[in-house]
């Protein structure tokens, strides 16, 4: 079976803490993602996402705090704006925009983190690998 590779950019306050809670709750989910922890999801530069696709990612997850809950006041709104722009770029490159997923996952939502990882893995499985040409464009 095709096992997609996922890069997860998680903010430390909410989503990474949520992923930790999934761990302490011993929730089982697909091991397809590797988490990269930032202080805030607004540290994610669109370039990082494109780089991930270029380097072989089949999907990229950005996880931040729920609207209104950002530890840095409004970082997650900036992330959302950047993701909207990025979606249009992905269209141009021929990368399905559902391969980039933005999720608000709080420190209390271990179950949501596990669910998102499972769902996203399944979706990427049905999408299959990215065309090589598209990967090159992402550079």
């Amino acid at each position: 079976m095709f096992e997609p590779k996922i890069v997860c950019f998680l903010c430390t306050w909410c989503t990474s803490a949520g992923a930790d809670l999934a761990g302490t709750s011993r929730l089982q989910y697909r091991p397809n993602g590797v988490n990269i922890r930032f202080m805030c999801s607004s540290r994610v530069d669109p370039e990082h996402v494109l780089w991930a696709f270029h380097e072989g990612a089949d999907g990229v997850l950005i996880g931040g705090c729920h609207p209104g809950d950002c530890h840095y006041q409004d970082g997650n709104y900036k992330t959302q704006a950047r993701v909207s722009l990025l979606n249009r770029l992905l269209d141009d490159f021929g990368i399905d925009r559902t391969r980039l997923r933005l999720e608000w996952i709080s420190a209390a939502e271990g179950t949501k983190f596990a669910r998102v990882m499972n769902e996203f893995t399944e979706e990427l499985r049905s999408l299959g690998p990215i065309e090589l040409a598209a990967r090159e464009m992402a550079k």
């Binding site: 930790d20 999934a22 761990g23 929730l27 089982q28 989910y29 988490n35 922890r37």
Partner: peptide, 12 residues
């Protein structure tokens, strides 16, 4: 982090 985000959440 290979415990909360790895060993505790995967069984394979």
């Amino acid at each position: 982090n290979i415990r909360e985000q790895c060993s505790w959440v995967h069984d394979d």
